[in-house]
Design a protein around this nucleic acid. Sequence first.
DNA 1: CATGAATGAGGATTCATTCAT
DNA 2: AATGAATGAATCCTCATTCAT
Lengths: 215, 215, 215, 215
Amino acid sequence: MADTVKKKRTRRIRETVREETRAAYRQAILDAAAKTFGRLGFHEAKMADIAAEAGVAAGTLYNYFDSKDEIFASMLQQAQERFIEMIQAVSEDEPDPLQRVLAFLQTSYAFLEEGGPLFAIYLRQGGLAEWSRQRLQESDDRLFKHYTALLEETFAEAIDAGLLREDVSPPDLAAMLAGLSDAQVFSWVRRGCPADLIARASLVFDIFLNGATKR
Amino acid sequence: MADTVKKKRTRRIRETVREETRAAYRQAILDAAAKTFGRLGFHEAKMADIAAEAGVAAGTLYNYFDSKDEIFASMLQQAQERFIEMIQAVSEDEPDPLQRVLAFLQTSYAFLEEGGPLFAIYLRQGGLAEWSRQRLQESDDRLFKHYTALLEETFAEAIDAGLLREDVSPPDLAAMLAGLSDAQVFSWVRRGCPADLIARASLVFDIFLNGATKR
Amino acid sequence: MADTVKKKRTRRIRETVREETRAAYRQAILDAAAKTFGRLGFHEAKMADIAAEAGVAAGTLYNYFDSKDEIFASMLQQAQERFIEMIQAVSEDEPDPLQRVLAFLQTSYAFLEEGGPLFAIYLRQGGLAEWSRQRLQESDDRLFKHYTALLEETFAEAIDAGLLREDVSPPDLAAMLAGLSDAQVFSWVRRGCPADLIARASLVFDIFLNGATKR
Amino acid sequence: MADTVKKKRTRRIRETVREETRAAYRQAILDAAAKTFGRLGFHEAKMADIAAEAGVAAGTLYNYFDSKDEIFASMLQQAQERFIEMIQAVSEDEPDPLQRVLAFLQTSYAFLEEGGPLFAIYLRQGGLAEWSRQRLQESDDRLFKHYTALLEETFAEAIDAGLLREDVSPPDLAAMLAGLSDAQVFSWVRRGCPADLIARASLVFDIFLNGATKR
DNA sequence: CATGAATGAGGATTCATTCAT
DNA sequence: AATGAATGAATCCTCATTCAT
C-alpha cells in the first residue's frame, strides 16, 4: 500500500519535473525566437537559426510548436501579454490621467529597452502586411486593442477633466501619441537600441502636450 | 537613295516605337510590383504574382530586370524620385517656413493617395530590416536623406524666425513630425487607403504646432 | 506577252537571289555555330550567342533551322563532309599505302588548323555521351565510319604488301593511329590551336611506324 | 556517475554510427554521380537523376554537397586520388623503367575497369571545355599533373638507360603513350566497358615500343 | 523526448522557342 | 524574311517539416 503511494508520489514528482522541463524548453525557444526574428525578420530567420540560438536541434522545435508561424505568433502573444500586464498595473496605480499617459510612455520604453527590438517586429511584421493578419490569431490583436482602449479611455478622461483639447477625438489623440512615440522607437532601433530610450519619454510627452510652437 | 533614306526613317520609327513599348512594359511591371509588394511584402510577393498583376509571363520580368531584388529596388527608387521632385518644388515655392511644413505634409499625403501603399512599404521594409539595407543601393537612402534634410532646414529656419521652440533640435522636431505623420499614414493604410488622407494634413499640423493641451 | 516573260524572268532572278541570300545566311549561321560551339561547348553556347556571332537576331536562326540540336548536327555534318572530301581526294591520289597514311595525317591536321577546334567538339561531344548519339542523325556517324573504313582499308593494303605487322588487326591499327593522333590534337587544342600542328604529322607517323625503342 | 559515463559512451557510439552513415551516403552519392555524369555528361545529368540513381531525394544531395558543381568536382577529385595512389605504389615497387610503364598501363586499365566510365568523363569534360576549367579547383589538376610527371620521369630514366629513342622528348613520349592508351579506352567505353581492357595493355605497350612496322 | 538527416513542395531564374510587328 | 520581345517549361536550390534512431 505504502509502496503504491510512494510510486504515485514519485510519478507525480516526475511529471512535475517533466512539466517544468517542458516549460523551460518552451521558454528558451520563445526567447531564441524573439532574438532571431528581431534580428532577421520573419522570413530571413530560419528554423535552424532559432534552434541554434536556443541550443537545441531543429526537430526539437516541433515537439513544442506545430510550425514556424505558431512560434512567431506565440512569441508575439507572450510579449504582448507581458506588455499589457505592465500597462495595466500603471493604469490602476496612477489616478491623474496626464501623469498616467506619461507613465504609459515610460513603461512602454522600459519594456522596449528590456525586450530589445521585439516590439519593432510587431510594428514591421504585424503592422501592415496582409499575410501577417491572416496568420496571426485574432487573440493577438485583441491584446493590442486592449492597449489602445486603455489609452483612449485615459484621453477621454483627460478631456472630461478639461486638460486636453476637445476638438480632437480620443482615437485621433491616441493615434497621434502613438505616432510620436513610434518615431522615437523607429529612430532608436535604427541607432541600434542604445540605453537612452526611457529618457526621451518626457520629450515626447512635452511635445504632445504643448506642441512645437514657441511660447 | 530615297529608298535608303526611307528605310532608315522606317527603322528609326520602329525603334522609337519599340523603346516606347519597352518603357511602357517596364512601368507596368514597376506598378505591378508596387501593388504586389505593398500588399504582400517582399518575401510573400512571388515573381509569379508580380507577373500576373502586370499581365505578363514570369519570364518577361527578366527581360526588364535582373532579379527580384532589382525590381524591388527600382520600384522604391522611382517612387522616391517622384516624391523628392514634388517636395523640392514645394520647397522652392513657399517662402514661409511654417506654411512650407504644411505644404510638405499636404504634398506627402497627395503622393500617398496617388501612389497607394508604396510609402508604407518603405516604412516597413526599408526602415528596419537588415537584409533590406544590404540589398538596397546607397543611392536609395540618399534620396530619403534629402527629404529629411529639407525638413530639418525648414525647422532651423523657423526656429531662427522665432516661430518654434528652441529647446528641441531640428532633427528631433523632424522626427516628431514624421512620427505624427506616419501615425496617420499607418492608420490610413489599415483602413484600406481611402481618399481622406490629404484632409488630415491640417490636423497633424495643428497638433504638431499647438499640442494637445486645452488652451 | 513580252511583259509576262519579263515578269517571269524577273521573278526567276529574284528567286535566285533569294536562294543565294538564304544560302549565305545559312552558311553564316553554321560558321557562327562552329565558332561558338567550339569555344563554349554545346550547352554553354546559347542561341543568343550564336545569333550574335552571326550578326542576326535570335529569331532569325529559326528561319533556317528547326532547333539548336539541328544547328549543331548540321554544323558537324558539314564539317565532316568537307573533311571526307579532302580525305577521299588524298585516298585516290596516293598509291603507296604508307605514304597515304602520312597524307591522311597531314590532311587531317591541315583541316583542323584551318577549321579550328571544330573537330575537337566532335571528339568531346560526339564521342561518348548518350544524348549526343540520340540527337545526332545516323548520317553523321556514317561519314565518320567512312573515314575509319578508308583508314582500315589502307592498313589492310599495307599489311598485304608486307609493310606492317600481321599480328595486329587493321581496326586495331586504325584505333592506335587515331589515338596517337588524337593525343596531338588534344594537346594542340589545350595549347590554344597554334599553327604547328601539321609539322607534327611526321613525328606521329614515325612513332607509329617505328615505336619508341632505341635502335 | 556511472550513468553519466554510460550516457557519454552511448552518445559517442551514436555519433560514430552517424558519421559512418554520413560517409556511406556521401559515397553513394558520389558513386551515383560518377555513373550519371559518365552516362549523360555534366549538363544532361540533372540533380534529380543523380538523386534517383543514389536512391535518395533531390534535397538530400544538398545535405552533403553545396551544389552540382561541387558534386562533380568531388567525384573527379576522389577518383583521381584513388588513381594516383595506385600509380604511386606501382612507381615505387617497379625498378625497371620499361616494366614500370607497362605496370602503369595495367594499373590504369584495372582502375578503369573497376571505376567504370569515370575517367572518360575526365577526358571529355576536364580535358577541353572552358567552363570545366573554370569550375574545377586547381587542386584537381595538380593530381593529374602528378601522374604526367611520374610518366615523364620514367621515360627520362629509360632514355638515360639507352632503352628509348633520344630524338623524342619525354613529354612527347608521354603524350604519345597517353594517346595510344586513350584510344583503347575510348573504344572500350564505346563498346560499353566490357571486361577485356586490362588484357589490351600489352598490345598498347608493344605498339608503343616497337611500332607498327613489320620486322 | 532529443536528434539531425531525409524529404519534397515551392520559388527564382534561364533560355530555347514562338510570334506579332 | 528579320526582328527582338514574350513565353513558360525546366532546373537548381532552399528550407519547413517529418521521421527513424
